[in-house]
Design a protein around this nucleic acid. Structure first.
Lengths: 202, 202, 202, 202
DNA sequence: CATGAATGAGAATTCATTCAT
DNA sequence: CATGAATGAATTCTCATTCAT
């Protein structure tokens, strides 16, 4: 009967569980059919709750997508710790970047794909995407590049621009892989090496 | 009533005009609202035809999107002539590539954005996209790289992989620009230079 | 093939018919179940059209109610001609007023009942009701009273207030009759006489 | 554990309090949104109880409305004491009637408005309304008129019909005031005088 | 008694598509 | 070929009510 303020109560835990349960179902259905073709009915079925219950935890179908974006942002941030561990010279940095990115995509690619699809076409959502997903990643890449330059390892002309280039590269590879390019999918490490070779030709 | 096979009759010409008129309207509305939120009613209104007429020229709403993809593919191919004119060493090649790409996006970005959004989420469409848009571009980039290597200008390890990297970079930049990144939008030439610097550091 | 601008074309006539058909069905269902409990599905069934068709002629379910109010207003105005014919001294005036009112209610009571029910609870609709139904009736009553006074027949202190009193009396009788009062329903003419007696006691 | 029948126990008192608390909240929310648009969730929130609790005291949402009607009837009856105090000739009687009615409306108008709106459209509720609200008021008005006649003050032809006329007048004034007529709202006392003048012209 | 999460039966509205004219 | 009225399936969201705790 005694509850500390910090530990979530049984009720709160159940509520959090339900939320997660619904969000996961939504992610699954969205990934399969895309956001507009996904129906709340199917999400409810997959989540094994009634349709009404969804609306006890989310304002709207759209809100489910926002919830998924938030989870994505969280997943990206969770990588931060690892990123800080990234060391080595430019070549190693790129190899680690590619490696980590692939792992991130393996876990969150389905969600990222759906989010991207919608975000391309919903200006308001795009703003949200920029704030919570794109901007933080830019910042982190930029910091790393800046850091490397200060350590005299490599000296790319402009950290902000270089961060954009790298970020765009990763995003583009993701999109093309999602569209079914087999080479990008199967020869990821070779791609990493090609990238290393391209940027450190000497 | 007698028609030669070569010269399009008045009727055929009018039909082609109608088709183009409808397709353009569709592109405009799709760009504005995205494919699923666009309605055939609005497309008909913009095209200044009745809804029924659309179905005399296209099987379905989905078919309009396919038609737009075909136009995109044509637009990409139209660049080929220019691409063949691309010469110069690696740095110049990249500069021209970026420049040409930007022009392409300025003209066809709205359509590309919609197509991308849908293609990310419709496997069948993705296949079509790969065949008509992605693959040809890969091939052309690859040829250029191959050609450059043979001329001893640059020697990227693997033309197919390098082509993918470049293609992904362009695609990623497009997506991030569409999502509202101001730097990519406004400092495109600086980005090109940063790319040159990155790949030819020595 | 030749159409004058004045005569409605076949299409326009059909459209008007459909509109009327739907509106009548709506009035019937609204009268039976009240506005909120009436469903568009049932209205469609009664009108013998599909649900979708309703929305080709009306913006929303709410719009059906507004349409009905407009018809009511028209019906009230249609009485105007008759009203102008009302002559006689005060007593006759009241008798004719009651008589005419009863006829109006017999034809439009079902609709008026529903409109009243909603209007009592929807401020925006109430405004519309005032403008299109209440105000014109006040004005007409007021004019008659004014006219009578000028002819020296009766001299109610204040035409605007007297008009309100009469209007309120009619409305109240209608409401109580709708609520099931048998006396008001069955002894309408006696009520008229009681009213005459009450207002002209001497 | 032992309870006498007369004194309500603490529990009973608390229960009565809860009931009143819920009913008041319901009245408030009904008045604001109308019966159908009011949600049990909001009523619960306003009453500061859970939704479930409502159903411990009332069978259904509809039952809340019935409860409110009962309160209205009680409020009307409470006026009876005062009414018995009404004396004076016909003119004074009308003035007091109008004055008392206005006070009643000021306190219970919000509830009456909602009840009226529903009662107009729900036959079963209408029956209940007649029994508990309309009929008692008719009876009381009738009694007064009868009483006056016996005292030789005024002699309206038929007490039952005159009672209906007066009752309808009051109801109609209420409805029109609720619909936003500013004159009825602001010149209530003048209306009373106009009524006096109308019925006692000599 | 109190709670409030879960329910699920609707309900209004949209829109791609058809087809008689 | 052009039209556009009609369709009706599909979808999101609401909310009174229940019931296990």
């Amino acid at each position: 009967m005694i509850e500390t303020d910090e530990a979530p109560s049984r009720q709160e835990r159940r509520a959090a569980t339900r939320r997660a349960q619904i969000l996961e179902a939504a992610a699954q259905v969205f990934a399969q059919k895309g956001y507009p073709r996904a129906t709340t009915a199917e999400i409810a079925a997959v989540a094994d709750v009634s349709e009404g219950t969804i609306y006890n935890y989310f304002e709207s179908k759209h809100d489910l997508l926002v919830g998924i974006m938030a989870e994505l942002a969280q997943a990206l941030e969770a990588d931060e710790g690892f990123e800080n561990a990234m060391t080595g010279d430019g070549a190693d940095f790129l190899r680690q970047l590619m490696d980590r990115r692939r792992r991130f995509e393996d876990e969150n690619g389905a969600m990222l794909r759906v989010v991207l699809s919608e975000v391309l076409v919903d200006a308001h959502l795009a703003g949200h995407y920029n704030e919570t997903l794109a901007a933080p990643q830019f910042a982190r890449l930029q910091d790393h590049i800046q850091h490397q330059r200060e350590n005299g390892k490599t000296a790319p002309a402009s950290p902000p621009l270089t961060a954009r280039l790298l970020s765009a590269l990763l995003l583009g590879l993701f999109v093309e892989r999602m569209l079914g390019d087999p080479i990008i999918n199967e020869r990821w490490e070779d791609l990493a090496e090609a990238l290393v070779a391209l940027t450190t030709p000497a």
